[in-house]
Simulated assay, not measured.
Amino acid sequence: MIIDLTTKVREELVEPWLAKQEKKHIALGHVGTHLDTYLKSEIPLEYFKTRGVLIDASSYSEKREIDIKDVEKYEIKKGDFVLFRTDRINKTYGTVEYFKDHPELSQDLIKYLAKKEVAFIGIDAAGIRRAGEHTEADKYCEEKNVYVIENLSNLDKINFDEMNIYTMWLEDKEATGLRCRVIAEKRD
């Protein structure tokens, strides 16, 4: 079974917002499912295929930060893609409600995952931290060779525990957000 985790964004949603952006090329990299790379580090090619670990935080992520205690029961290994399901993506991507006070990971959890040397932290929300802490959290992760992928979708369709995640991106010397395609595949 294969599930596309990439958020498809309608042009009519993007065009009005993009028209207001000074650096359209840079802004476009942060639309839909994308990988943040503020430090412009080179993403290891072996990150293309990773083992996936899905954390279903949908029942509590709107009420509190997702913390270490929420992931302790999972076996998280070096090189994993840790996916956080919050169901925020179901609040209509691109609306003010989607971006306002979105679910976030605790600072301790971000450090914990970086120490575990995961490859990716993915979330079906606008980021792993809000507002002024958003970029700093992404930079911290990138310094540790961990990359944050935002605005995932269809995490609620994953009904299997063992999976491979395939992540495809194109390098860009200017963009701080790299649009990407993310696919989950059930492992036999």
Rank of each mutant, 00 (worst) to 15 (best):
M163H: 06
E136A: 05
T92V: 13
I55G: 06
K8Y: 14
E117H: 15
E104T: 10
T176R: 09
L155I: 00
S61M: 06
L105M: 02
R129K: 13
F160Q: 03
E75Y: 09
V9M: 10
D36Y: 01
E133D: 15
I3L: 10
M1T: 11
T167D: 04
R88K: 14
H30K: 13
E171P: 01
E133M: 13
F120E: 08
V148L: 05
P44C: 09
F160D: 03
I55T: 09
A175P: 00
E185L: 08
A114Y: 03
E72G: 00
D56I: 08
G32P: 06
T33K: 07
H34Y: 12
Q107G: 02
I165N: 09
E162S: 13
L39F: 06
M163I: 01
D4R: 02
T92P: 00
H102V: 03
I123D: 02
G177D: 05
L178K: 10
A57L: 07
E171S: 09
N159S: 11
K100M: 13
I123Q: 02
D124C: 10
A57G: 07
E62Q: 15
I2K: 15
M1C: 04
K173S: 07
Y140H: 07
E46C: 05
E185P: 05
P44I: 10
K73S: 11
I165R: 09
Y60R: 12
G52H: 03
G122V: 07
R129T: 06
E62T: 12
E12T: 03
T167F: 02
C180L: 02
N90C: 01
K116Q: 14
K24F: 02
K40A: 04
E143P: 07
E133Y: 13
R85W: 08
L35K: 04
Q21N: 10
V118Q: 14
V96N: 00
R85Q: 10
E162T: 08
I66S: 05
K116Y: 11
F99Y: 14
M168V: 08
H25K: 15
P44S: 10
G122T: 04
S61A: 15
K24I: 04
M163A: 04
L152K: 02
K8F: 13
C141N: 07
P103H: 08
E12K: 02
A114C: 15
H134G: 11
E15N: 04
D101M: 03
T176E: 15
E150K: 14
K78F: 00
I76R: 03
F160A: 02
D67P: 05
K69V: 09
G177Q: 06
I149F: 06
I2C: 11
T6Y: 03
K173W: 00
K24E: 07
I26T: 03
L155P: 01
I128N: 11
E171C: 00
T135V: 13
L5N: 09
V182E: 00
Y60A: 12
R64E: 13
I68D: 07
K40F: 02
R51T: 09
E185F: 01
H102I: 06
V71Q: 07
E22T: 09
